[in-house]
C-alpha cells in the first residue's frame, strides 16, 4: 500500500507492505537510522518517536497506522543546527554512554517535559519506565532531563514547533 507520512517536516510518500512497521519504514525506507530497535516485545523504548507530537514506540505501530500523520524522529529534534535542550542536557550531564538508547530516551523525555515542564525526580523515573538503558544506571539521564527542564522556559518545551522540524517546510515526494 502507499503511505504518506510527514517525517521531520518533509512529506514522504512510499510504497510499503501492509505489515511494514513504522520503525522499519524510518530505518530502511527513509534511512533515518537514529531510531533504533532494542527488543521484540515493545519493552525497551529504543524506537521511540513522536506521532503527531506524542511519544510512541515505532516498533509497535504499522507504517499504515501513521499514514497521513506527522512523525518526528531524533534527526528532527535539532532545528537549523540548534539542538533541543534535551540534546544539550544529555551531553552536559553525560546522560549517554553507548548512545543506543539515547534517541528513545530523548523522545520520551521531550513528551514528558511537554506535559510536565518541571518534573520531580520521581516523575522522571516513572516516565522512563518504558525505556531501558544498560549503560548509565539512569542516574545521569535523570540529571540530563532535570538540566533541560531547568534551563528552558516551560512554554518553549511545550511548543514542539520551536524545537523540531515537524512543520511541513518543503514537499518532497519519494516513491519506491
Amino acid at each position: 500500500m502507499q503511505v504518506e507520512i510527514n517525517v521531520n517536516g518533509k512529506a514522504r510518500k512510499a510504497e510499503v507492505e501492509d505489515r511494514t512497521l513504522l520503525v522499519y519504514f524510518l530505518r530502511d525506507t527513509l534511512q533515518l537510522t537514529g531510531t533504533h530497535v532494542g527488543c521484540d516485545t515493545s519493552s525497551c523504548g529504543a524506537c521511540t518517536v513522536h506521532l503527531d507530537g506524542v511519544a510512541v514506540k515505532s516498533c509497535t505501530l504499522l507504517a499504515a497506522q501513521a499514514d497521513g500523520c506527522s512523525v518526528t524522529t531524533i534527526e528532527g529534534m535539532a532545528k537549523d543546527g540548534e539542538m533541543h535542550p534535551l540534546q544539550e542536557g544529555f551531553r552536559e550531564c553525560h546522560g549517554l554512554q553507548c548512545g543506543y538508547c539515547t534517541p528513545g530516551m530523548i523522545m520520551t523525555a521531550a513528551d514528558l517535559l511537554k506535559r510536565t515542564p518541571k518534573p520531580s525526580e520521581t516523575e522522571i523515573r516513572f516516565a522512563l519506565e518504558g525505556n531501558i538503558c544498560r549503560c548509565t544506571g539512569y542516574h545521569n539521564i535523570v540529571k540530563a532531563i532535570q538540566w533541560a527542564a531547568e534551563n528552558t522556559a516551560a512554554p518553549m518545551l511545550a511548543d514542539s514547533h520551536l524545537w523540531t522540524n515537524d512543520v511541513v517546510v518543503e514537499k518532497v515526494v519519494e516513491t519506491e
Binding site: S42, A55, V56, K57, T60, T108, E129, G130, N131
Partner: peptide, 9 residues
C-alpha cells in the same frame, strides 16, 4: 498501565 508510550496508544 504500562509506560507513557503504551498509555498513549
Amino acid at each position: 498501565i504500562g509506560d507513557p508510550a503504551v498509555r498513549s496508544r
